[in-house]
Design a protein around this nucleic acid. Structure first.
Lengths: 119, 119
DNA sequence: CATATACATCGATGATCGTCAATGGGTTCG
DNA sequence: CGAACCCATTGACGATCATCGATGTATATG
């Protein structure tokens, strides 16, 4: 259910009485909303969201060789999405031998769980 | 701070011992992650995020004529972003006379506040 | 009815994005 | 050393996106 618009309690406006109201200031600074928008954009792709969810679900870091077969895309595409998630600070990576391991950061895990109720 | 990878407690892997692990199942269904990704994408643009924030901050619906001057973009662009936020269910609109009023839905408000700590 | 205003829609344009084949760097194994 | 393997990077291509001028649709005013 959505908020009941206060509008219903107001008389219809005439052109002669201007619509202009005083606006409450935004809570987010331009800088903060840029940062936040960036993180939401990183998570705002179905493939990347599923990746983050999968990684957040694991008790241990996961090898790319195990991650890749979970998705229909090819290896370079997987690698590309992992990089975007990493740039946004939602996942982290470490190389061990010939394998690369990925895991969700605390930031990534808590963003995901904050947002899951909206799925 | 990010999670300490369990990796550090494991010996380096050899090629002969395969990396493959059993993966915990993802928590989000494909369908749910599609829906959620869509909402995050709608909020994952700096202009739209600032719009949502501004609207969520107001005690009353806001006229487009008051909203538009808050942003550097032109009127058709503002209208376009408002439509995307509306399609995602984050804001709602109502026309009254010659003016269009917008307000943040409950969904939009709670998504925004769930996500604000990550700004 | 004619004019003016508010704002949604359309069409075009340049930028960004998702995708993949090809390639390269780094590691392991024989 | 040379072959095999993992995976990141590059370059290209089509799709989607943000943006804006032009236009359309209501509504209000005189």
């Amino acid at each position: 259910m959505t908020a009941i618009p206060v509008l219903d309690r107001l008389p219809p406006r005439r052109k002669s009485e201007p619509c202009c109201a005083s606006l409450a200031a935004p809570a987010l600074s331009a800088q903060k909303s840029d940062l936040l928008a960036n993180r939401l954009k990183a998570a705002g792709d179905p493939t990347r969201l599923r990746m983050l969810d999968l990684l957040a679900q694991q008790p241990e870091p996961i090898c790319v060789c195990d991650l890749t077969p979970q998705f229909p895309q090819n290896q370079p595409t997987i690698s590309h999405h992992l990089k975007l998630l990493r740039d946004a600070g939602l996942i982290e990576t470490e190389k061990r031998g010939i394998w690369s391991y990925y895991w969700a950061t605390d930031e990534g895990k808590s963003l995901l769980s904050a947002v899951k109720p909206f799925a």
